[in-house]
Design a protein around this nucleic acid. Structure first.
Ligand SMILES: [Mn+2]
Ligand SMILES: [Mn+2]
Ligand SMILES: [Zn+2]
Ligand SMILES: [Zn+2]
Lengths: 150, 150
DNA sequence: AGCTAATCTGGAATGATTCTGAATTGTATA
DNA sequence: TATACAATTCAGAATCATTCCAGATTAGCT
């Protein structure tokens, strides 16, 4: 999961063309998996790998991958959206100071069947996040550590 | 919690002036609590209550309340942000078809102490969401029920 | 009643994302 | 290996929720 071969295979199976742009984006997503990079970072990193790639393509590709369930999009509005290849259910710990996003494995068990029975809601994707301060930012003086407002 | 008196009291205590605009916004938030309304809805509803209020004020007020911990902001980028007064930890079930947001009470317990010990991360606010289809939208034919892309 | 910092306002600015339509290219097929 | 064409890429324009601005108004205090 989240290695070049498996992704390339997934793309072939879904009939998505393999282009240099897409391969570059995939590489960035793999290399920076822990960072949960945004479109800007992905664009700049991908540019180092191949001669030509446009921001439009980056957005189109990330949208396509996300829609196909190959990656996951974390949406924000005061901050670039962030993308991750870790599709396993996990909690993202998001630092309000520096925007760092840390994966936290935890068996969060909402039983889809129970939820459906109670509310009629059919669960598909989850978004489990906690906002707070990472080790580094928790250290800094209170006044000057907020970047994300919330 | 989430009644006019308690909120007004909270504002007075925090030294936030009571203006007609703010009171109107508070009333909307209370009346439409279940809807998790966006800034647009809040603006239009508030306009029915008082002669003059601008969208700028609605945004400023919601931002202020959110920052002060009086309400909570749910951030999106393909959809207006949504606001809620239910500060208790709960899961929001978000319908990808119609955008409806349903509160779901569930004892999702990540132990802050344990997380801090493991990762150094200091948890403050949570955002627990599941995306899927509400009872109504789950019924409709697959092709024509998606509004939220993700 | 007067003072003043806080608040409100309409309009302009922002900025991430989406859209557009023409040019390019990956891949299936012969 | 060449051909065909739908898929993909591209630069630039458009979108639109949100934020910023600077001047006008006002809540709450003395
Ligand atoms: Mn993650
Ligand atoms: Mn809720
Ligand atoms: Zn941090
Ligand atoms: Zn629905």
């Amino acid at each position: 999961m989240m290695n070049r071969e498996s992704i390339v295979k997934a793309l072939r199976e879904k009939g998505i063309k393999l282009t240099p742009q897409r391969l570059a984006i995939i590489e960035v997503l793999i290399e920076r998996n822990d960072d949960h990079p945004g479109a800007g970072v992905i664009y700049r990193e991908a540019r180092k790998k191949i001669r030509r790639i446009s921001l439009s393509t980056v957005y189109a590709t990330l949208g396509e991958f996300s829609r196909r369930g190959i990656i996951k999009t974390l949406q924000f509005d005061q901050m670039e959206n962030r993308y991750e290849g870790n599709l396993a259910e996990h909690v993202n710990l998001i630092c309000k100071g520096c925007g760092k996003i840390i994966d936290y494995e935890a068996p969060i068990s909402l039983d889809p069947a129970k939820v459906a029975k109670k509310t009629g809601f059919q669960m598909l994707d989850s978004r489990l996040e906690y906002y707070g301060y990472c080790r580094d930012c928790a250290g800094r003086p209170k006044g000057k550590r907020d970047k994300i407002l919330l």
